[in-house]
Amino acid sequence: MYTADEIYYFNSEASDFTGIKFDRVETSPFQGVPINEYKNNEERLGDYESVLDGIDAYDLSQSELANFQQDMNDAYLVITGNPMTGTSEPDYQTDENGELVLDEYNNPITVDNSETDVVQNMLKARLLILDNNNDPEGPNPSAQYLTKTYDSTGAEAYKKRLVDDILRFTFTPDTNDQNFAGTQSGEAMKYKLMGNDNLRKTKERLLTRGIMRRLRLIGNVWSIKNTLYGIINEVQLKFTPNVPQNDEERVTQLKALYGVISDETLFELLETFTGVDADEEMKRLDEQKQKGMEDFTAQTNYKQLKPDDGGQDGQLLDQAD
């Protein structure tokens, strides 16, 4: 058991942790409870929990659609205008004592071609044959499937409304929206992503809080040998949003900033495009300039030592080479 200052140890010989006995207590080197929390939001809720009812409703509507399709496949064929063909009596078999004869499942056994036997066979074949010979105008034969009516237009509108509500209340952009991309400007796109961007910043703030607390706990342990607490407080966490970027437009904007801001700031802005750290990029640029100066000096010396008649200057050229 952890507290802010101490760690308590308990032992138990049983696998179900019954009969726990206190063993010892030690001073905690963390100077805090070494259990770190990374909150998703101030309410400590998942992004989906606020719209869980909407998700369940969408799943139910999808399930009902699947059930309807299955019912269509299992629909009964109804044929009217044909008299009942079962004529045998009685409906169930009996023994010499007049008792019903039962099958292995204790169900009465029907007599072949009895009315009950015909109805059972029709149900097995998913077929219903109905008699309308009592119609004064005579029998009017017809056949149709016995199905429920499904409002496909209303069901699709209902599911679309559920999806729209789920996306809106979770600040999730609808990437399937036909008006989401296309010819819209970058600023218009930012307005559509503004809710999601604000939510992302909240998550970054809470995640930073959790990471910094973890680093401070580590710093408390390391401070036994070295003092790192002040250095840890200077740590700056950097998050890069995973959003589409117009690289060509970004490079054009950075070119316009050349000479207006410092090279170091310019390379820091370019880091998300090149993937190279600003310090490393400046180091590479210095090495490139140094190499260019060395190449220029070498070419200048070569021109000065180049012989015209193959005399003594030729020996100087060989020495220079």
Rank of each mutant, 00 (worst) to 15 (best):
P244A: 05
L257S: 10
T274E: 02
T265S: 10
N246C: 11
Y258D: 15
K283R: 09
E264Y: 09
T240A: 11
E281R: 09
P244F: 07
P241F: 08
T265L: 13
E249V: 15
N246K: 07
A278W: 00
R284A: 12
D247R: 11
D277N: 09
E281K: 10
L257K: 11
L285A: 11
E271Q: 14
L254H: 03
E280D: 13
E280W: 00
E271G: 02
E280P: 02
L270G: 04
T274M: 02
T265R: 09
E249R: 11
V276Q: 01
E287L: 13
T240N: 13
L254T: 03
P244W: 05
G292W: 08
E281S: 13
Q245M: 15
Q290G: 11
T252I: 15
E264T: 05
N242Q: 12
P241N: 06
E280F: 03
K283Q: 10
E268K: 05
L270R: 00
V251N: 05
L285C: 02
E281V: 02
L266M: 04
D286G: 00
V276L: 02
V251K: 08
L254R: 03
G292I: 08
T274Q: 02
K291A: 15
D247I: 15
V243C: 08
E249M: 14
F267G: 01
D263P: 03
I261F: 08
G275K: 00
T274P: 00
D263N: 10
K255W: 11
I261G: 08
L269P: 02
T265H: 08
V251G: 00
T240S: 12
Q253L: 13
Q253E: 14
E287D: 13
L266R: 01
E264C: 00
P241A: 08
E249H: 07
S262L: 04
Q290Y: 11
E280I: 03
L266V: 02
L269Q: 04
P244S: 03
R250D: 08
E248C: 09
T240D: 13
E280S: 09
M282P: 02
L257T: 12
K289A: 12
L269C: 04
L254A: 06
G292P: 08
M282W: 01
P244Q: 03
A278D: 04
V243R: 10
E271C: 08
